[in-house]
Design a binder for these strands. Structure first.
Length: 607
DNA sequence: CCATAGTTGGTCCT
DNA sequence: AGGACCAACTATGG
């Protein structure tokens, strides 16, 4: 009878051993066999020489299971949900509001609002299946043991998460589960592939270039197909909430409001333009997928960062971040469009390419120690960034005096989202382009405001833009004036996000300090009074910064050569390294003198 | 050891 | 719109 509850997933008779994606059994021939769902309906079997993540030893029946939602806030393509339902009488869907993620100084209300909407949507979908979401408050390692006991939990299922915070949190939960005699099942569904498995396939070393990563992906074949959503699931115990409260767990189990979490309500017009949650996420995804020609021709660099309402890209990133939509579902839908459309765009610029960028950065983030730091990070160039709190704050608050930069920062803070190229522009400006601030500071500010902020992607992209890793052509600097002109010569974007400049003539919109004073008066915007003067002289400073970057690169090379006491290879590198080192030392000297000039420049241009 | 190519620069020229 | 130039980096694959 329980079997009928989970019919969409399991067609075998109850006594048969059941496999799903991520679950392997060693066959008599020595291969591991894995059952995956094919696109619509049927099943396919995969054979592998090694199990991908883990092998389920047994399919024990469990009276009561716990389905722990963290990311993966969806019912479709949710293998943890499938595993929780298997042979279970009661399934308890839980989301724990971890105080770690509820700090208004570190995470903006815009993202929390999107999360709460996603939880509301998840709860409502679960209620449609005669279940509900139990929202708990507190640290997972304190809340879960109580629930294990109160609900007599025999199995906990949750989506595997590669972020360092999640990894250590989940390690602790595994220990606690073992103590409580609770089985743990943690399948992969946040990424296209199991990242650890991919790294293994790459010979234990994460590829450092996109090209070599896509070769790896071609080698291993397409990602597993997405699972369909359940049509029913075992109900939670009817007194589950009373039992939780008896254990001293606070809250009524419902999705809380922003204000109960210590956040203020968002003002009108503030927030991501679309509602959070699986329902809206799937709607938005299908809306974009229905424009097949657009999907097939999509090339990211050809989209305009200055487009807003509607934006030039899909804006699905927040839904992917929280797992409201499955990357595997999106991927398979894209592939089927490409198949039916000859001459469609390709990675890295295609939509599929965007998903592969995500996968690539997840892979490098897992394969690199101290990925979120400059110091101790083997792929990160060591650069002596200036750290001016004044410049950093001006950047965050949109007071740099460069309308394009300030408008983008305003969109970031008010909507929690920016077009990828606008992220490039402001990140380049903060780091190697103009302000020479540490990328970790910019990373923190993005992490605070972006609804889609993702640990691996955010760190990777900041290293990219600051030319600290992945990207080394530091002499290619975005101009805060020329770049937006290409797609928005009239400055519509700036005028929307910075209304103080709405009457400034297009001719001056990206460099309003050059407007004659009569023009400023007529536009009711005096530069230096109503809108700041530019904080730096871009034309001058970006050239100085290029030479500072060259000095840092050379210093790194010299260091690698000089201190490398390693093997034979090291010796040959030492020679060339030292030669290069001599060169750059002179350059480094000039870098210091220009840096003094730079201070003067700052004074001249600050408000 | 070497050649190659890299998600999306800016500027000036034709 | 497209190309040369700027001043020149590095992981990868041979």
């Amino acid at each position: 009878m329980l079997q009928t509850l989970i019919t969409p997933f399991i067609r075998q008779p109850p006594e048969a051993k059941i496999f799903t994606r991520n679950e392997y059994e060693k066959s008599t021939s020595g291969w591991y066999v894995c059952r995956v769902l094919a696109t619509k309906g049927g099943y396919a079997f995969c054979r592998r020489k090694k199990p991908r993540t883990f092998t389920l030893s047994a399919q024990m029946s469990a009276e009561s299971t716990l389905l722990w939602f963290r990311k993966g806030l969806r019912l479709h393509d949710n293998p943890a949900l499938e595993a929780a339902c298997k042979n279970a009488k009661h399934v308890h869907p839980v989301f724990i509001i971890d105080p770690w993620f509820m700090n208004p100084d570190k995470i903006s209300g815009v993202r929390i609002k999107f999360l709460l909407e996603s939880l509301e949507d998840l709860d409502s979908s679960l209620r449609g299946l005669n279940s509900k979401l139990h929202v708990m408050l507190g640290k997972p390692d304190e809340v879960l043991p109580k629930l294990f006991e109160q609900w007599n939990v025999k199995r906990i299922c949750y989506e595997y998460d590669t972020e360092p915070y999640a990894v250590s949190r989940d390690e602790r939960i595994k220990e606690l589960a073992a103590e409580a005699g609770v089985e743990v099942i943690s399948p992969v569904s946040h990424t296209l592939y199991d990242i650890d498995w991919l790294i293994q396939k790459a010979g234990g070393k994460a590829p450092l270039t996109y090209q070599s990563f896509t070769k790896l992906v071609d080698q291993v074949g397409p990602p597993p197909a997405a699972l369909p959503p359940p049509t029913a699931l075992p109900p939670p115990k009817s007194d589950a909430l009373r039992l939780a409260a008896e254990a001293g767990l606070p809250g009524d189990g419902c999705v809380p409001s922003l204000t109960t979490l210590g956040y203020s309500e968002l003002a009108d017009g503030i927030g991501f333009p679309f509602t959070g949650g699986e329902t809206t996420g799937l709607q938005q995804m299908h809306k974009h997928l229905s424009r097949k020609a657009w999907v097939a021709k999509f090339e990211k660099p050809m989209t305009a960062p200055t487009d807003f309402d509607p934006a030039a890209t899909t804006q699905l990133s927040p839904y992917l971040k929280f797992g409201c939509i499955s990357p595997r579902l999106f991927h398979s839908e894209l592939v089927s469009i490409y198949r039916s459309t000859p001459g469609s765009s390709k990675p890295p610029v295609s939509l599929e390419g965007q998903l592969l960028w995500r996968e690539f950065f997840y892979t490098t983030s897992v394969g690199t120690p101290n990925f979120d730091k400059m110091v101790g990070n083997p792929i990160c160039k060591q650069i002596p960034w200036d750290n001016s709190p004044e410049l950093l704050t001006a950047w965050e608050e949109g007071r740099t005096g460069f309308p394009w930069i300030d408008a983008a920062m305003t969109q970031l803070v008010t909507q929690g989202w920016l077009h990828h190229l606008a992220r490039h522009a402001v990140a380049c400006f903060l780091t190697r382009g103009d302000l020479f601030c540490h990328w970790e500071r910019g990373r923190d500010i993005f992490d605070k405001h972006l609804v889609d902020s993702d640990w691996a992607l955010n760190n990777a992209n900041w290293m990219w833009l600051s030319a600290s890793a992945f990207f080394a052509q530091y002499f290619r600097v975005y101009s805060p004036i020329a770049f937006p002109k290409k797609t928005d010569p009239d400055g519509k974007y700036v005028k929307h996000f910075l209304p103080v400049l709405k009457d400034m003539p297009s001719k001056y919109i990206y460099e309003p300090w050059t407007a004659p004073i009569e023009v400023q008066k007529k536009a009711k915007c005096i530069i230096g009074k109503d809108y700041p003067k530019p904080i730096v002289d871009h034309a001058m400073i970006h050239k100085e910064n290029i030479s500072r970057m060259a000095a840092a690169y050379n210093a790194a090379k010299a260091l690698a050569g000089g201190s490398g006491g390693g093997g034979g290879k090291g010796a040959s590198k030492t020679g060339s390294g030292k030669a290069a080192g001599g060169d750059k030392k002179s350059k480094q000297g000039s870098g210091t003198t220009t840096s003094n000039k730079r201070q003067k420049t700052l004074k001249d241009f600050s408000k």
